[in-house]
Design a binder for these strands. Structure first.
Length: 582
RNA sequence: GCGCCCGUGGCUCAGCGGAUAGAGCGUUAGGUUGCGGACCUAAAGGUCGGAGGUUCGAGUCCUCCCGGGCGUACCA
């Protein structure tokens, strides 16, 4: 009762707090002549795997043993003697082979419930990106066809990463780079015109390097429906000059709505073509590289002399026909990102088939004077689809793809996102369509969302009974299942910190599952034992309010991580017919 | 050939150089007539592809080998 909640550290800096306690103990031990004056390694506070070893542990004695010429256990005991009492933790313990284990005090854990509630939607926000501008560019698929399932993986990863960086304090922008210039755009336009002409009864073949997919027929139909024969030219004459652009715009419109259906909204759609327009970005960076002596004309083309900068070979930036390559566009684009717009952290989310491009882009980034360290290319591996036990390989341009729209239709955006995020980007993943749409306990998506719905249900029920969490006394929360839930809630900031610094969003869904587990176990504990003293809502009103306070905080935590993943946090679950018939 | 990614229980995959390698699904044995069981508890199941090395300590770092994927364009 009356514990000075605000004066304590919160979950965001408890590790740092413990670290400073330990280093303080080292200084004290050195001053007392019990330890030689040795250099300290950093970051020694860890999370023991086994809860029996406490909430946090320091391995400093193990690291110090050699330099201090003393056994780790002896060092640990010396340090523990010099550790001051602290309200956030119980008495530290020494454990072989030389750890110092810390257990958080109940008072501290209880205080976190209030902390979470006061932080609300911003709970677990960090400041590691404060004052820095970050950009996440993702999907950026060619607007020559609809998005497929693989693009969905990039969308889920990029969007979640952007949200996570936002939570870590960065000012974040989401961007889609529209490849509306270049050779693929041309053959797209040629295909579109061929399909368009076919609709008017002309016997025209699509170009051999064109796009055979059926969606091009649909696109032509859409064009005909919207514009009639306005784009038709006499037989044998070339397509009207603006047809390609109109087609690209239609395609981009479709891509934009697919992504919106997936819950992804961009701050900016950046046109590749704009690099060559009035902005003058392309001319500017090329002039810069030329002045640096990093461009040479050879064999009729213009080359970037990347081999001088450690690359395997030089690369063409201007073809012999005078048109810039994709590489040239990308150099200009990243010049725009770093130099023109001042992002200090730039993340490109690419499919792994582009990995050959990473190194030379970084080299170019350094060449125009930006800090290439600020550029992170996050590669994600292929998606293999599985349906009915069969593997469906996604192949580009085969015309036979499974679109993102179809995936959303079939399994829903939430489930698709969760499964995409669950796997580390670097691992090839198998996407089991049957599992993802299964509305049963085989599906972890429902497990997590159900936990949130249950939390909401409890609060709803309490309100009906005239009970609210207001004024709940958190110091009444002393049972194992209650405190275990608080411990799990506290991990969120660590998860955000790891995800935001390693750019690995897979930590989010894994954390969401264990938070849901902690809640389900808490929720179940009192039911199983049929012990009225263990119910969330009991005759004991004070205890009920305290538990509701915890429920409120848990709901905030779970909603936060669902939000970071771009998933909805449902107040109730709608059971679909599929589950009932089964 | 060279370069990058991946190889962890039956399946799909986590695992910031630390203490007995984890989860979900599947399997087995229980609980649960519920503030929404799409729940909970427990068990069985792995020489972390192989061999060396660094370290007080290696699934994690280094080298080599094996297997799978991708790249190695004046395509993107």
């Amino acid at each position: 009762m009356g514990y000075p909640v605000r004066s304590m550290a919160d979950a965001r800096d408890i590790r740092q707090h413990l670290e400073s306690l330990v280093t303080g103990a080292v200084r004290a031990a050195v001053a007392a002549g019990e330890l030689p004056d040795v250099a300290l390694p950093g970051a020694t506070i860890e999370r023991p795997k086994d809860a029996a070893n406490g909430d946090y542990a320091s391995s400093l004695p193990l690291r110090l043993a050699r330099a201090a010429m003393k056994p780790p256990l002896v060092i640990a005991e010396v340090l523990v003697r010099h550790l001051p009492a602290d309200p956030a933790i119980e008495a530290p313990e020494v454990a072989p082979p030389g750890f110092i284990n810390f257990r958080l005090s109940n008072a501290f854990l209880q205080s976190q419930v209030e902390w979470v509630i006061s932080a609300g939607e911003r709970y677990a926000d960090l400041a590691i990106g404060a004052g820095k501008k970050a950009q996440v560019e993702f999907v950026s698929a060619n607007p020559t066809g609809p998005l497929h399932v693989g693009n969905g993986r990039g969308a889920a990863i990029g969007d979640a990463l952007a949200s996570t960086l936002g939570a870590a304090g960065y000012e974040v922008e989401r961007e889609y780079y529209v490849n509306d210039a270049g050779t693929q755009t041309d053959s797209f336009g040629d295909t579109l015109y061929a399909r368009y002409q076919q609709l008017f009864g002309r016997a025209v073949d699509i170009p051999k390097d064109g796009y055979p997919g059926h969606y091009m027929v649909e696109l032509a139909s859409q064009l005909k429906a919207e514009a009639g024969d306005r784009y038709l030219r006499p037989e044998g004459e070339p397509a009207p000059a603006d047809l390609t652009e109109v087609g690209i715009d239609l395609m981009v419109r479709g891509i934009r709505s697919s992504l919106a259906a997936f819950g992804v909204n961009y701050d900016r759609w950046f046109s590749e073509k704009s690099l060559y327009g009035a902005s003058g970005v392309y001319d500017e960076v090329m002039a810069l590289l030329l002045a640096n002596g990093q461009l040479v004309d050879r064999e009729g083309a213009r080359w970037f002399t990347s081999s001088d900068l450690g690359e395997d070979k030089d690369n063409v930036v201007v073809r012999s026909d005078g048109r810039p390559t994709y590489y040239a566009s990308d150099i200009a684009y990243h010049y725009d990102k770093f130099v023109k717009r001042g992002f200090s952290l730039v993340i490109d989310v690419w499919g792994a088939d582009h990995h050959g491009h990473v190194s030379r882009l970084k080299t170019a980034t350094g060449a125009f004077g930006a800090d290439a360290e600020g550029l992170h290319v996050l590669l994600y591996q292929l998606v293999v689809l599985k349906r009915g036990g069969e593997i469906v390989r996604l192949s580009k341009r085969s015309g036979e793809i499974i679109t993102l729209d179809e995936l959303i239709d079939e399994v829903g955006a939430d489930a698709a996102r969760f499964f995409f995020l669950l796997r580390s980007p670097g691992a090839q993943m198998e996407f089991d369509l049957d599992l993802a749409k299964k509305q049963s306990n085989e599906n972890p998506v429902f497990y997590v969302q159900y936990a949130h719905a249950r939390l909401a249900g409890i609060l709803r029920r309490a309100t009906e009974q005239g009970l609210s969490p207001e004024g709940g006394d958190v110091t009444l929360l002393t049972r194992g299942h209650e405190l275990a839930l608080v411990r799990e809630m506290m991990r969120l900031s660590e998860v955000i910190q790891v995800a935001a610094t390693t750019f690995e969003p897979q930590h989010l869904p894994h954390y969401a599952m264990s938070l849901a587990t902690a809640f389900h176990a808490f929720n179940d504990a009192f039911k199983v034992q049929n012990d009225s003293a263990l119910k969330v809502i009991t005759e004991d009103e004070a205890l009920s309010r305290a538990r509701l306070r915890l429920v409120q905080a848990a709901k905030i935590s779970l909603a936060r991580v669902l939000g970071l993943m771009g998933m909805t946090a449902p107040e109730r679950m709608d059971r679909a017919e599929a589950a009932i018939e089964g």
